[in-house]
């Protein structure tokens, strides 16, 4: 292979740029300089999506660990059928699902410049998220009183670890939502920075999606 091959192999030589006279070169401003990027996507949003892609593997491992652990639970030990309260969990699942709606409405309000609406919806999202976490704490307490501790058996360890990881994610999400609210109240988050709301929103919806999986796989699948 010679040098010529490489030159020919190049599919689209940008001749126009090559031949641009010197004077015009100064007009060709760096894409970066105007806040643009090579792909046209913002750094922060790309970062968040990469992080969420990574989280898929994290929750995948936790969910499959749970499924495997449950299948290895010895006969006669306290298991899912002994503790699960489907109607209760259904309500808290519904609460979390609806928090995704309020989240997206908060973003929509911010995009339209309706900051009052944003504050209302973001508060609602935090409250719904808080309700979900409170429900989880209540559920854990009930299970514990039924005799299912973290170390009781392999099901207990796996169940608390999986739902605990999810609960921690929700709690971090609530802290971030509250921070958004504080920033808005302090005047440092307006419609011109709506992207921040969008980023936290992406995280929040992802956490919701994970719960959609957990609710079906852990609670609803026939035991």
């Amino acid at each position: 292979m010679t040098e010529t091959d490489t030159a020919l192999a190049d599919p689209a030589p940008e001749v126009a740029q090559e031949q641009a006279p010197q004077g015009h070169a100064e007009e060709a401003v760096a894409v970066q300089e105007v806040g643009g990027t090579t792909t046209g996507i913002s750094h922060n949003k790309l970062m968040m999506w990469l992080f969420l892609g990574s989280e898929c593997l994290l929750f995948g491992a936790l969910i499959s660990t749970y499924m495997f652990a449950k299948s290895r639970l010895p006969e006669g030990e306290i298991g899912p059928l002994d503790v699960f309260d489907i109607p209760f969990t259904s309500v808290s699942s519904f609460v979390l699902l609806m928090s995704s709606l309020t989240m997206v409405l908060a973003l929509s309000a911010m995009n339209r410049g309706n900051e009052r609406g944003f504050r209302i919806w973001i508060t609602a999202t935090s409250l719904l998220g808080g309700t979900f976490v409170a429900g989880q704490v209540y559920e854990f307490t009930v299970f514990y009183n039924h005799g299912l501790g973290y170390t009781t058996n392999i099901f207990g360890s796996a169940f608390y670890t999986l739902t605990g990881f999810h609960g921690v994610h929700v709690s971090i999400g609530i802290v971030m939502l509250m921070s958004l609210l504080m920033m808005n109240l302090r005047g440092s988050l307006g419609p011109d920075r709506a992207e921040r709301v969008e980023l936290i929103g992406l995280y929040w919806h992802f956490v919701d999606i994970v719960w959609i999986l957990i609710f079906t796989i852990i609670y609803l699948f026939p035991q």
């Binding site: 790309l46 999506w49 969420l52 892609g53 990574s54 898929c56 929750f59 491992a61």
Partner: peptide, 18 residues
Amino acid sequence: LFKRIFMTGIALALGVYL
């Protein structure tokens, strides 16, 4: 691009854990 990143994560997770 976002869809591709997310789908890659989901596909890998499904693949290896299944």
